[in-house]
Amino acid sequence: MAEPTTRMKRAARRDQILQVAAEVFAAEGFAATNLDDVVAAAGVSRTILYRHFESKTDLYRGVLDRACERLAATVQGGPGRFTGDSIDGLLAAAAADPDGFRLLFRHAVNEPEFHDEMQRFRAGMTDVAHLQLADTIDDEAWARWAAHLAPVVAIEAVLAWLDTGQPEPEHAAAMIKHAVGGVTQGPRATPGRPTGEDRAG
């Protein structure tokens, strides 16, 4: 029975290191952060850190993976869906791990070592949004435009919510959904704009 207990302690230590690393990376950036900074902030030795992570790159990727796992756990329908209810999941993930969320959606794309990976991640979000929006927007060009813009609006709104101290958490989701709705429901809400059927006629 001792072995499962050991694994639990190891998992808890790994999560602690990831939590502290997220804070340090968010404050200092990947290039400027030294592993000794993480070691000191976490109150562990380099030996313990290397038991869990092979390098600074491995540690940074672990922080990003942890943030992605939170998204998968909180976004309704899973990460393969983008709906109005996804906003609640984004807010929950951001509140649970603000630094990890900022790294995933703001900082990592600016790190040369992770740029391409983050660009693919963002492209995947656009593809997911398009799959959802194509069912409700009959204009294909608008659907693609909205698919690019809607996730950006949602994520930037959540980041702004974090940066301003998480105001009015009970109303934040509704306000962000309203902003995203201005993009996704534009074709139906824009006065005088011809629909696909009007143009076809």
Rank of each mutant, 00 (worst) to 15 (best):
M1G: 14
A2Q: 10
E3N: 11
P4N: 08
T5F: 15
T6I: 11
R7C: 05
M8N: 09
K9G: 05
A11F: 07
A11P: 08
I17G: 04
V20I: 14
V20D: 06
A21L: 07
A21W: 05
E23V: 13
E23I: 10
V24A: 05
V24K: 00
F25K: 09
A26S: 14
E28C: 14
E28W: 08
G29I: 03
G29H: 06
G29W: 00
A31H: 09
A31D: 12
T33S: 15
N34L: 15
L35Y: 08
D36S: 15
S45G: 13
R46G: 12
R46H: 15
T47S: 14
L49F: 07
Y50R: 15
H52G: 13
S55K: 06
L59V: 08
L59Q: 03
Y60L: 11
Y60H: 03
G62I: 10
G62A: 07
G62H: 08
L64H: 02
R66F: 01
A67F: 00
C68S: 13
C68M: 14
C68T: 15
E69F: 06
E69Y: 03
R70A: 07
R70T: 05
R70W: 06
L71K: 03
A72Q: 13
A73D: 12
T74V: 09
T74G: 07
G77K: 08
P79L: 09
R81K: 11
D85G: 11
S86D: 04
G89S: 04
L91R: 07
A92D: 02
A92V: 02
A93E: 06
A93I: 03
A93K: 00
A94P: 02
A95D: 03
D97K: 01
P98L: 04
F101K: 07
F101N: 00
R102N: 01
R102Q: 00
R102W: 03
L103A: 02
L104P: 02
F105E: 00
F105A: 02
R106Y: 00
A108F: 05
A108K: 01
P112R: 02
E113F: 01
F114D: 00
H115Q: 10
D116H: 13
M118A: 01
R120C: 06
R120K: 13
A123P: 01
G124V: 00
V128W: 00
H130A: 14
H130D: 10
L131D: 09
A134V: 14
A134C: 10
D135L: 13
T136G: 11
I137S: 06
I137K: 04
I137W: 05
D138T: 12
D139P: 10
A141P: 02
W142T: 14
W142Y: 14
R144A: 12
A147Q: 06
H148M: 14
L149P: 02
L149E: 12
V153R: 01
E156V: 07
E156T: 10
V158W: 04
V158Y: 04
A160S: 10
W161R: 01
W161Q: 03
L162S: 01
Q166F: 03
A173H: 00
A174H: 12
A174L: 11
M175E: 11
H178S: 11
H178P: 04
A179W: 09
V180I: 09
V180C: 01
G181I: 08
G182N: 11
G182T: 12
G186V: 04
G186E: 08
R188F: 05
R188D: 12
A189F: 12
T190N: 09
R193L: 15
R193M: 13
P194R: 06
T195H: 02
T195I: 01
G196E: 09
D198R: 12
A200I: 06
G201R: 15
